[in-house]
Design a protein around this nucleic acid. Structure first.
Lengths: 345, 345
DNA sequence: CAGGTTTTTGCATACGTATGCAATGGAGGA
DNA sequence: TCCTCCATTGCATACGTATGCAAAAACCTG
């Protein structure tokens, strides 16, 4: 038995028209919001459509309207809960506006430009680049083709590209000020991906903040935004630099850092070592970590992204925009706090 | 300034043909693998395509070939790392086969059938339902339309539907046997979503396993597969039932359970309470939890899913298949172990 | 070199919908 | 009653590609 799989030819608007005793155009108009159709005809067409199981073919519609109502989203690292939640929020928000997400997962190791080559063939209405590894060359190319692009959580020097980011540099600065005023003398830094703008900005802010507090540039090790990478970086830093605090470029790495420090090396957090993360994503709140972290407000960032996309799709000639969504240092228990209230920087 | 956004009309195969001094069909053939084109013409066309920036229109192609090379994936709860990783693996695997994922996120609370109504309009080549909340009615409907469907991590009574699951019932049984032989006398259960097949099978196996070990049906509370739900369930169970072990229907909830037991109620894990999860997903390995868990091997499950999809797309008349991917109880430190080796059940 | 075979190419058409335009019909006003 | 106006409907065409078919070209074979 084949389970009842039928080879049913798809039902087209013409089939419905024939059954309703009218023309294909009329059927089209019934399914086009705002078109002029008499109540009588509408009823007949709907009835015929229902009984035949008609579903408008979005592909054919896209061909003629030149709008697919599809937004391409390029992502990497869904193992990082921040990105997983971003994707979920983006999808929910876009679906509410009648758009669907065509997902592209980028292997951060492999070059992803050929991947986008595929994307563009689908006539997507817009593109969201949320993968730190993607070259901005292809973003420019999309724009040149008239397809709106928003870089999510990824700044760029290119003035022709729109982006939405958290306040990375300020975050790094505030973490530095917080650690310094907490009496830490040898803070270290675990970097994310070396090429990424988020890492660059967070590190720059951190180093500047330390300098403003009279502290030297921190020892650093790269964790590549991965759990294993951060674990290795923590081991190396603790072996070689004897830091009294570690700022990790995201929460995912901060968790690995805490695990290694606490369970491999027997350190007490924050007694022997303070740890600070970045993102303030779900697990930061879990009591085992109770992670002090600079927040990236996911909701507002997604809202800003979708808002820009909708505006750009409405009018592609709108000027580029670069949105920075502010965050704040969320104080929890993974880092020693200053005795007095934190002075305003 | 508008950032250089041009209103470039899209380049079509006809444009390329004109420039290469040939016909549109020839251009089409150059971009169709396996078609017959002379090296000379191919070179001329490629050159013209390159200089014009031509990209074949996948939408138009789909219209005529009736294949979109798009697979719809319905998901809910990307906050659960298991599903986030599944999505990443599915996407990587399908991209390698030349397919893209059109993502549908289902709000487990809202009815999702109207959502799928939208999906079907995109002429997707196949559908993966990985959301526990989706009705199987629409799955049947997809099948009736000739679109292959695979239910992921979701069993169904309907013999007309294919599915890939972990070994839920056996997992529940093994957890029960393990806890019983570890000397636990009052194991409890935190359920996931009441309607879901995963929860039903895991619970059934657990209850049967306990019975085989001479233990009564466990006290239970529903955690709805969410962190907060499981936290509340843990509080309720510990207040009312005084269990010496808790089996949670997935890892995500087991982590919430450990957090609440350890940090709110000051219990030692596994000294005062053993906790066992299901999935063996990333955080289970984190040392703070060191979670004993029955594994659902993500790689093999995704592999089985994609394999079935490819076969079904190749030949839609193939018989339905129901694949159970075996897992194993991964022993870690969150549950007291039996003194002697676990007897074979 | 003739005749046959295979490869390459272009023509024409189909895929399923949206939409400009003209035709139809009915309502309303004088 | 006749004319105007507007709402409704159908006709025809366009969107960009793939593909069957036949013409043309290239290649063999004896």
């Amino acid at each position: 038995m084949d389970g009842g799989m039928s080879t049913a030819r798809r039902v087209t608007a013409t089939d419905v028209a024939r059954r309703a005793g009218t023309s294909q155009s009329a059927v089209s108009r019934v399914f086009t919001p705002g078109a002029s159709v008499s109540p009588d005809l509408r009823e007949r067409v709907m009835e015929a459509a229902r009984s035949l199981g008609y579903r408008p073919n979005a592909i054919a519609r896209s061909l003629i309207t030149r709008r697919s109502r599809i937004v391409a989203v390029a992502m990497a690292d869904l193992g990082n809960p921040f990105y997983a939640l971003v994707l979920e929020a983006l999808s929910a928000r876009l679906q509410a506006e009648g758009y669907q997400i065509l997902l592209f997962t980028a292997d951060p190791a492999a070059p992803s430009d050929p991947m986008i080559e595929q994307v563009m063939r689908y006539q997507v209405d817009a593109v969201v680049l949320a993968s730190t590894g993607l070259s901005s060359a292809l973003a420019r190319e999309c724009r040149a083709l008239g397809v709106p692009v928003v870089m999510f959580n990824r700044m760029t020097d290119d003035p022709d590209l729109s982006c939405v980011t958290g306040d990375n540099e300020r975050g790094g600065r505030e973490v530095a000020a917080f650690l310094a005023s907490g009496g830490h003398r040898r803070p270290a830094f675990i970097a994310g991906l070396e090429g990424s703008s988020t890492n660059r900005d967070r590190e720059r802010g951190f180093v500047r903040g330390l300098a403003e507090a009279g502290l030297a540039a921190p020892p650093r090790a790269a964790g590549y935004y991965s759990y294993e990478g951060a674990a290795a970086a923590t081991r190396a830093l603790l072996r070689e630099a004897a830091p009294d605090a570690i700022f990790c470029a995201n929460d995912h790495m901060a968790i690995a850092c805490i695990e290694v420090a606490r369970h491999e090396l027997g350190l007490s957090i924050p007694g022997d070592l303070s740890v600070v993360g970045f993102d303030d994503v779900g697990p930061a709140r879990w009591r085992s970590y109770d992670l002090t972290s600079f927040s990236q407000p996911l909701g507002p960032m997604v809202e800003a992204t979708v808002g820009m996309l909708l505006e750009f799709m409405d009018d592609p000639s709108l000027p580029v925009r670069r949105v920075v969504v502010g965050g704040e240092l969320v104080l929890r228990g993974s880092a020693r706090r200053p005795p007095a209230p934190l002075p305003c920087p």
